[in-house]
């Protein structure tokens, strides 16, 4: 039985009519001795199978905590998690760990940023892949080994027989990340989280890994949430993008709409502060003044207002809600959204 057919077997569980993932007003606060850190502060979205959502933000935006909060991979103590996460109609917020264990690996899986620390250094790669297989699919050792072989070749690892017997440190960073992907997709999850999957990798390898994730996502008809700080990474590889700032989604749109018609000043500032390969050398970069937001004592009103070039008194006192989707499916939270003319002066392509 190949890995693909295993996926089929798990996919034949009665699929309800509900969308794969519905996140509604999800909040995740951490209690610290300095105060409550509002890492995720009311995030809502829906994700269907076969679709890819890009979550973009800088450090402190809450993007990493968001994916962990959806998966339920949070510390037990000193965390307040509220709102709703429905996976195929099943509510996961407040669910028992014993239920979550059924989902982890089997229904939803995660590829982490650093493959070196997320693989067990003293366990052979083959064993790390087959462990999850045998736990979730209840198959024989031989069968699991065969599947692991098929998985390794499907993620583009040459000489899979030899690689199965290796330890993580005997592999390059790119190979390790391929192994991580193989482990993540082993049980045919319906939802794959990729949290900065290429940040630790070289640029030529990054391209290969992103291609691999995209191929696997399409072939296996998974939903994928691609978390990154790099707008370039998500541009050509996602269906939809959510831009996060200070624990909130500030703009969300289908990828092409977002890039051609961005409305939130933060998205604009983020795009224009990246040096672009098409710009001539010594082009003066636009910068976002100030610093990322304070998640314990966030600014009143719009969280971006202290750094926003267009902010008015209204922005500093009243927080703009995330607008209802327009005909393009475009949502943003801004009192004075960027107009096309303003964008052109900002030099966004």
């Amino acid at each position: 039985m190949s890995a693909a057919s295993i996926k089929e077997s798990s996919a034949t569980t009665p699929a309800s009519e509900a969308p794969l993932l519905v996140v509604n007003d999800l909040k995740t606060y951490f209690k610290t001795d300095r105060g409550l850190v509002r890492a995720v502060d009311g995030v809502s979205f829906t994700l269907e199978r076969g679709r890819t959502l890009g979550v973009v933000g800088e450090s402190g935006s809450g993007k990493t905590v968001l994916s962990r909060s959806i998966m339920g991979l949070l510390p037990k103590r000193d965390v307040e998690r509220s709102g709703s996460v429905k996976f195929e109609g099943v509510e996961l917020v407040g669910a028992d760990t014993s239920l979550m264990v059924e989902y982890w690996g089997d229904q939803m899986a995660m590829v982490f940023q650093d493959p070196m620390t997320s693989l067990n250094p003293v366990m052979r790669v083959g064993k790390q892949i087959t462990e999850g297989l045998r736990q979730h699919l209840d198959i024989s050792k031989d069968h699991a080994n065969q599947t692991a072989l098929a998985l390794l070749s499907s993620v583009g690892i040459p000489e899979p027989e030899r690689r199965l017997r290796q330890y993580p440190h005997e592999m390059s960073g790119g190979m390790r990340q391929r192994v991580m992907i193989a482990i993540a997709i082993a049980c045919g999850p319906k939802l794959l989280f990729a949290d900065e999957p290429t940040t630790a990798l070289d640029v030529t390898v990054q391209a290969q890994i992103l291609d691999l994730l995209q191929t696997q996502q399409r072939d296996r008809y998974m939903a994928m949430i691609l978390v990154t700080h790099d707008l370039g990474v998500v541009a050509g590889r996602t269906d939809e993008i959510a831009v996060m700032y200070a624990g909130k989604v500030v703009e969300k749109a289908p990828t092409k709409v977002l890039f051609s018609n961005l409305r939130h000043p933060y998205t604009e500032a983020l795009l224009s502060s990246i040096p672009k390969i098409s710009d001539p050398s010594h082009t003066r970069l636009k910068t976002i003044g100030g610093r990322p937001p304070n998640l314990i004592n966030p600014p009143s009103g719009c969280k971006f207002s202290p750094r926003c070039a267009y902010a008015t008194d209204k922005c500093r006192t009243e927080e703009p809600p995330l607008s209802a989707p327009d005909s393009d499916g475009h949502q943003f939270s801004c009192w004075f959204p960027v107009e096309l003319s303003a964008k052109q002066t900002a030099g966004v392509r």
Partner: peptide
């Protein structure tokens, strides 16, 4: 994890404060 991301950050190491 929070610290990892903070390494790329313009926020102080505890992630959180302007003051």
């Amino acid at each position: 994890l929070m610290h990892d991301s903070e390494a790329r950050s313009d926020v102080p190491a505890d992630s959180v404060t302007q003051q």
